[in-house]
Design a binder for these strands. Sequence first.
DNA 1: TTCGAACACTTGTATATACAATTAACCTTC
DNA 2: GAAGGTTAATTGTATATACAAGTGTTCGAA
Lengths: 241, 241
Amino acid sequence: MAKFSAIKQHIYRKIASGDWPEHHPVSSENALAEQFSVSRMTARRALQELAEEGLVVRSKGSGTYVAPIKSQTSFMAIRNIADEIRQRGHEYSAQVHVLRHERATAQVADMLQVREHTQVFHSVITHCEDGIPVQVEERYVNPEIVPKYLRQDYRQITPHEYLCAISPLTEASHVIEAVTPSATVAQWLQLDKAEPCLRIQRRTWSEQGVVTYALLTHPGSRFTLGGHLQFTAQPHSSNTL
Amino acid sequence: MAKFSAIKQHIYRKIASGDWPEHHPVSSENALAEQFSVSRMTARRALQELAEEGLVVRSKGSGTYVAPIKSQTSFMAIRNIADEIRQRGHEYSAQVHVLRHERATAQVADMLQVREHTQVFHSVITHCEDGIPVQVEERYVNPEIVPKYLRQDYRQITPHEYLCAISPLTEASHVIEAVTPSATVAQWLQLDKAEPCLRIQRRTWSEQGVVTYALLTHPGSRFTLGGHLQFTAQPHSSNTL
DNA sequence: TTCGAACACTTGTATATACAATTAACCTTC
DNA sequence: GAAGGTTAATTGTATATACAAGTGTTCGAA
């Protein structure tokens, strides 16, 4: 293993284990260089990459600190929620509320591009981080593309992991909105009913067509979406500040 | 500007202008080092960061190549809200609530990357479509980059139009969240206080640095963000459905 | 007690150098 | 023409060194 990678893993484990909670100072470049018998630049590379990955924050003159843990997802990168939670050093668990086939309503049919009343798969799962619900995932799946969807144990594997293996993603669309959750969803998220939630409607395609239509609901108080763009100066582009 | 940043921008412009289309070879570390009179490690850092940002792909022994182009979501395409409203065939109007300079709080200073208590420009504007408020825009602006920001009439021209003309955008970051609006913002949006809102925190950069930090608050009942992605098949990418 | 300068320590940028690992082109042999 | 070896060029990792810029602590003077 590369030396800088070994240093990254050492720090990652300190954070994941709870030894270094958020805001805790991380060893300096010089201290790590000494501890691992490497150059400061090698230690620095490890810290820089951890900063790039959001695990630590760096402050010139002050030091490196464990980053505050946020449920922030870069929605540009559609990721496995279990991996995100584990990467933050927390424990993932899931509660499955619904897992059945049923006739598609007009809206669901429209989204999945199947005929109304066609049988589709329907699942509702609450994803938890350290036992705290962070997302209710309601999902409709096209049975022709993923015939064995209902046969998986979604307490052991997320729909993401399964669907990714079965049918690689070629396309996705998102609609992001602020909503008041239904009483049921509020209950699953352990919320006061009036709390605003961020809801992502997501459709995904594979080469065979629309695979899933999902509604992902997150409590507003503990979830954000982030993104970062860079632009060239394009005369025709209408960017706003 | 740091030397590695200048190299990044050079390459970025080559790609953005079309000079170097996707899969085109990028100058090697050694070639860039010679061209820019820097060390190979400095040139290397520029290429590494571009690779990190997804603009180029690197192959040991082979070289660096322009990455295949991926779609960007429409809501990441930052547009002039007045143009959007007019494009829908509706009438745009604005109410200006705040337009002044004031000392930056710690959070605003952090976002604008100025020292705390530095004087910054602050504006709060409600944007209306056919008389109905659709967005409250609270914005902090760096006076060094846009010294005449306060002197404009923002009932006649949006901050976007002005800022775009003054300081072309090079970079933007977004955080999207669901919030309960403050009483004041709820009033400006003509909402029942409990209604959930979608809030976008946006920072934008020009070549001189961070230009603005904006909080854009939309009523959840009449605003969504949309986007559509297409993916290339990437072996390392962990996409979810 | 307060304030400012000095100092120590930190991260940030940069250079020169060295060796490792991989790829692709070229040349020679069959 | 194909195969294999060599070579050159590339990226990857690492070290030592130097200076710049920022933060936080300490100490002395007012």
